[in-house]
Write a protein that binds this DNA or RNA. Sequence first.
DNA 1: GTCATAAGGTATGGGTGATGACCATTGATT
DNA 2: AATCAATGGTCATCACCCATACCTTATGAC
Lengths: 241, 241
Amino acid sequence: MAEIGADDRLTPVLRPVRAGNGFEEALEQILQVLRLGLVPHGERLPAERELADRLRISRVTLREVLKVLQDQGLVESRRGRYGGTFVLDRPRPPGEGELRRRVASVDVEDILRFREVLEVGAAGLCAADGLDGARAEQLRAALAATHDAPLAEYRRLDTLLHLTLAELSGSSTLTAQYAAVRAQVNDLLDGIPLLVRNLEHSQQQHTALVEAVLDGDADGAREVMREHCAGTAALLRGFLT
Amino acid sequence: MAEIGADDRLTPVLRPVRAGNGFEEALEQILQVLRLGLVPHGERLPAERELADRLRISRVTLREVLKVLQDQGLVESRRGRYGGTFVLDRPRPPGEGELRRRVASVDVEDILRFREVLEVGAAGLCAADGLDGARAEQLRAALAATHDAPLAEYRRLDTLLHLTLAELSGSSTLTAQYAAVRAQVNDLLDGIPLLVRNLEHSQQQHTALVEAVLDGDADGAREVMREHCAGTAALLRGFLT
DNA sequence: GTCATAAGGTATGGGTGATGACCATTGATT
DNA sequence: AATCAATGGTCATCACCCATACCTTATGAC
């Protein structure tokens, strides 16, 4: 009575209810915020009470998380009114072999495929629905920000542009999932050099993408986005051989 | 110093680390299995010890979950060797207003959009990559099963077909996310009648979809899937006005 | 008929994290 | 200079959940 077949059908759903204890999950999420660059260096995270509230963990547990981040030099806490937890400039210590270690712990193909699906889907939805004035302006602004960006800030502003598109897609689940997968992509990208040629190509694609979205050209937007993702994917696969 | 803008950027990431206590999350996942019809009526779930192990919760907590399901008449426990937790035929008590109640607690647009993105993405990936013999056969078999299905089983086998496509996409994250969103869709669909006309149309689309995927026609597969999802979406939106 | 086995049913002790109150510090405002 | 308010820092209590062991029941194998 081997029900292995039936069991296999269950594997996608019957996953661990929690990916670790509350501490680990909270750490992961705050690292996501940092990896996505949602809070620029020098700015601060929400106050402990608010953070704990949002993550639905106790302040005690949250503080243990912040302690770790502080010990690693990623953030700094200041007391008093107008104090808070401030994001520091990353010391960038991705030693050699760091990339390989990261690759070993995740399924890169899974990440790249899922990312493409979400990005292309978001672009398609935005273009098909059309964006009203305010939203269109939001997208244009995010694009413009990437143009006159110092090299060190490019990754961050690029992430924000894509995240903006995801938000405009009208599906909060999609946005949340994209944030998660993009944080993983950024983690991988941190392990390889940032080439100016790739960057310029990216910028052309970004411009074409935004144009297509604002024109309501869904097929065009999807196609540009697909190529854009394929570029990153090829780059990463190349460095991971 | 209103940082509302900055805070808003964080909302996609700073979600509750846990959607409730372990009990609630486990209940949700097992309900997912039932809603997806992964275990046909009369068959049994994995043994308590294995289930608890997979969900990473204690058997005590799992048993509380099963107790609830048993009290609601969804499953039945039998002791002894070859015993287990068996799935019962649903008494189908979706009383009036049930649909409206469900709709009130979820963001239907979010669900429908996210579903479309995943389905279209999965179809595209499968078609673009091509499926080897075994996988192609798996897809054909899932399609065939829906053809000669009794009406009462249609929803279940349709779900399995789509889930199969998601699995073949090569992204386990995509598969897991699709399972989650499809469970929600099924929950909504349970609230509206199953029309034979829609069903026949669905079957035509399924056939065209599988053909396109097996032909490696990515654009075609995506287009068929998009229409397929749009159909369901229109149906649901119609009943939810 | 007896036994082994695999399943559900039960009891207990210990650890982790949540709750809520309180203290300490800082800088803007008055 | 005094005050206030928002923030980080600390602690005691308690509910929830886990790990583990053991008991009970039913069925096939011998």
